[in-house]
């Protein structure tokens, strides 16, 4: 997967976040402060508008500039958390012009580690980690079992979606939803939902390129 595929992923993420802007914001209104879709849409729009984004010549550079722009433009908790995720993944890919599945798996692990280090969230806390962690596990398992690129990315996206859905029954232990205590149960976590959308966009961008 070359820089163009990664760029297409981010463009497609921006599109899906914009299309889901109101849905994500409604999820956030239920248990947070009703701005998740608005902020992420604003951040991804800024990424697409950044000069360095169009010029980035390697997959790692595409992801690093995406992360830096999200940190600069989004604010809230999701700006630093998504920003760190993309930057760590970008740094893990380095200068590799066409990283393979093992390199991508390591990059996804680095993204997860960055998010957990910054946000101190564990699985089960009802955060984006509940989508990202099972997704990276499913991806590395599929890669280890010799799955095709499309097959491994399908496993990634499916696990993220299932992980996001599983947050509905959880009580939030981190982030603003934790203020609600037991009242946070019964609602999907907006960060987990947006993570599932972004990882589905990766699957679709790779598929469209093949």
């Amino acid at each position: 997967m070359d820089a163009e595929v990664f760029r297409a992923w981010i463009v497609s993420s921006a599109r899906t976040i914009e299309a889901s802007r109101d849905h994500l914001t409604q999820l956030d209104a239920a248990i947070g402060d009703a701005d998740h879709g608005i902020n992420l849409a604003r951040g991804f729009a800024a990424v697409l508008g950044a000069q360095e984004f169009g010029k980035a010549s390697s997959p790692g550079a595409v992801l690093t500039v995406t992360g830096s722009t999200l940190i600069s433009k989004v604010g809230g908790a999701s700006g630093p958390l998504y920003g760190v995720a993309f930057r760590r993944a970008g740094k893990a890919l380095g200068d590799d012009a066409d990283p393979g599945l093992h390199a991508l798996s390591a990059a996804l692990d680095a993204a997860l580690a960055g998010v957990q280090q910054l946000g101190a969230a564990r699985e089960g806390d009802k955060t984006m980690v509940d989508a990202l962690a099972p997704a990276t596990r499913a991806f590395s398992k599929a890669v280890a079992e010799g799955a095709s690129r499309d097959g491994a990315l399908a496993a990634l996206a499916e696990a993220a979606e299932a992980g996001a859905a599983a947050t509905i029954s959880m009580q939030a232990l981190k982030g603003r939803a934790s203020y609600l205590g037991p009242r946070s149960v019964g609602h999907e976590d907006p960060g987990a939902a947006s993570t599932a959308l972004i990882l589905a966009a990766l699957r679709d961008a790779a598929r469209a390129a093949s």
């Binding site: 402060d33 701005d35 608005i38 902020n39 600069s72 989004v74 604010g75 809230g76 700006g79 630093p80």
Partner: peptide, 11 residues
Amino acid sequence: PGEVFTSPVPD
């Protein structure tokens, strides 16, 4: 000042 109800950014 950040956006409405959204923390400002490090910059």
